[in-house]
């Protein structure tokens, strides 16, 4: 279970990086970065999973007294919640910059932007 989730996450990271490095369209690069970001989140959540345990929410099924033996690690989940929100912020910023670049050159092709190329 953990292996499958981690493998999926790693494959998503590689796919995303491949897309970001080979595509010429800026929007496609942004989508690729989002895919890689999702992969990182999946790997992080998978690290916190412990076989045969349940979500870190206390209720009738998980009384507070035996919580430590019944729940998975809540820390990676809290971390990933933060990571998702920050990832969304980064995606938004990338989209805003892409819009400005399009406004400037009338094109989203990365090879048209050669000012900083050496």
């Amino acid at each position: 279970m953990v292996t499958i989730a981690m493998l999926t996450g790693f494959i998503l990271i590689l796919m995303g990086l491949y897309g970001a490095l080979t595509n010429h369209n800026i929007l496609r690069m942004i989508v690729s970065f989002s895919v890689a970001n999702t992969g990182v989140n999946i790997v992080l959540v998978a690290v916190g999973y412990i076989h045969g345990r349940t979500a870190p929410i206390l209720n009738e099924a998980v009384p507070a007294a035996e919580a430590a033996a019944r729940i998975i690690d809540p820390v990676p989940q809290a971390l990933v919640l933060t990571a998702i929100v920050i990832g969304l912020g980064i995606t938004t910023l990338m989209l805003a910059y892409a819009y400005k670049l399009y406004e400037m050159k009338g094109s989203l092709d990365i090879s048209k932007f050669s000012e900083l190329k050496w």
């Binding site: 870190p56 206390l58 919580a67 430590a68 729940i71 809540p74």
Partner: peptide, 23 residues
């Protein structure tokens, strides 16, 4: 097993803060 940090949160959240959702 839960590591040290996770164990602390699991054991102390209910009595200290009273929140059912530990995350």
């Amino acid at each position: 097993e839960l590591n040290l940090t996770g164990r602390y949160y699991a054991e102390h959240t209910a009595q200290d803060l009273g929140a059912a959702n530990i995350v």
